[in-house]
Design a protein around this nucleic acid. Sequence first.
DNA 1: CCCTCAATATGACCTCCGTCATGTTTCTTA
DNA 2: TAAGAAACATGACGGAGGTCATATTGAGGG
Lengths: 215, 215
Amino acid sequence: MEKNAPTLCSGVSPEIMEQLEKCSVRKQFKKGDYLYRNGDEPAGIYCLEKGLVGLVTVSNSGRERLVRLFKAGQYFGHRSLFAGETYHANSLALDPVECRLFPKADVLSLCKKYPEFPLGIAEKLAKELGRAELWLGFLTDRQVSERVADGLLYLKAVHPAHSWTRREIADFCGTTTETVIRTLAAFEAEGLIRQKGRKIDIVQREALLECASPH
Amino acid sequence: MEKNAPTLCSGVSPEIMEQLEKCSVRKQFKKGDYLYRNGDEPAGIYCLEKGLVGLVTVSNSGRERLVRLFKAGQYFGHRSLFAGETYHANSLALDPVECRLFPKADVLSLCKKYPEFPLGIAEKLAKELGRAELWLGFLTDRQVSERVADGLLYLKAVHPAHSWTRREIADFCGTTTETVIRTLAAFEAEGLIRQKGRKIDIVQREALLECASPH
DNA sequence: CCCTCAATATGACCTCCGTCATGTTTCTTA
DNA sequence: TAAGAAACATGACGGAGGTCATATTGAGGG
């Protein structure tokens, strides 16, 4: 498998990709930059080649929630485009980002030509919806400590190289920075993880999993 | 506009609908019946002609969460089909249900023929994903009373005729029956709603809205 | 190598709301 | 219409976790 070969989705043939390549625009963002913001008109589909992007909703109380993540090889910005809505969240570079933008007009015209393209988009959206709805139930059912255990495992799995801050973990798990800090301290006391400086190492993966989904 | 004319989605022409009609199977369910269950293989796409269907996730602690709703004229069961996954939730008849089932094989073959079909599916999935992710943030940000205010307005808007139980409201808002009962009692004391028997009437919609999204 | 600022850490406090127990009302159906 | 089962209601209790205040640590820039 070729490194960083940009693939939009399973249903998209190399032929389509080739056509898209031609009209794509390269973009770069520093860590902390926004690729787009809540309310903006969708520009097209982004394909992430390097880095890490987080989709962040902001409530009217100002609290931020990390609702979706994209790593190298994945694409994003497709939801708003296909919903025919403006962006419903901010797109934040959690690490330095290099990506391509496939302009809206080109994406839509390709949709008409290749039926397997929207089919692939539908597949991705369907999987994301399933994940969101399962997590939605988890958020209100489980204690914060269980959510942090589960969230930590997930975040580490998505991007092991990223240095996840307590704030990011809190925003993902639907809690506060302080509570994450206390929870991690408890995990460390039990020997489940180890913290040195800002780094978090998972020591007992199995025990942490058990902590995330007790019977 | 014709009453109850089954429309799969905006992008689906009458021509496609006609083809689907031919291979559809009529089904009926009593209130409380499950149309399908978590883990089942997707059978096709359901089109709801009468009644109300709730999508219910069950956590391993046994708690139920109402994650999506379908009323007459809407279709469902599409997520699992297009994700290529088994159902991730139970499909529950909240009222007596009459529906059609468009078998999987026919749906998929139509997808290949009509590119605008998967495009319409993608649009619906994208909108549902947006709603889910916004609600996800709301669930962890806001007090239960705000969620109940918001949830009550939403549920009433989706299906005013349905007699929403305190349990259903709780499952939707991510809380317990007792807390919903107490919250509704408080709303009634403030004159925002009126309860007679099991019926809930919204008296001051604006005030309730303000209660749902305070500044 | 400082200097600065964000990230991490810890304590005190308090309230929201989940849990359990118990009782009442309302609907259904036999 | 009586009976049984849901749904609704209310009280008491306690703990999880949010908030605020205040250090301390560590990372990156000049």
